[in-house]
Amino acid sequence: MKELTREVEIKNKLGLHARPAARLVQVANRFSSDIMVKSGDDEVNAKSIMGILMLAAAQGSRLKVRVRGQDAEPALDAIVSLVENKFEEE
């Protein structure tokens, strides 16, 4: 099974607060792959809202997205583009 990783930077001003976190989880849940997100030393499941919130990732911090599964490629693209587009927030 394929495993892909990519790093992406949080660009939106308020960081990964509840709304962007919910959007990230929403997008992650559209894919069957296992998706993990790492910030600092913490790595959490991207399909768990509480996990993502625990990261409390601020603007400028880097997330390492690790995807493993059938639809790994589109999943990684979707997550990365969501973060890069500032969660369609601002």
């Binding site: 308020l14 960081g15 607060h17 409390a56």
Partner: peptide, 12 residues
């Protein structure tokens, strides 16, 4: 969560 984020990203 926002407070935690803010405390981390002093610069911005």
């Amino acid at each position: 969560v926002r407070e935690k984020i803010q405390s981390k990203s002093g610069s911005s």
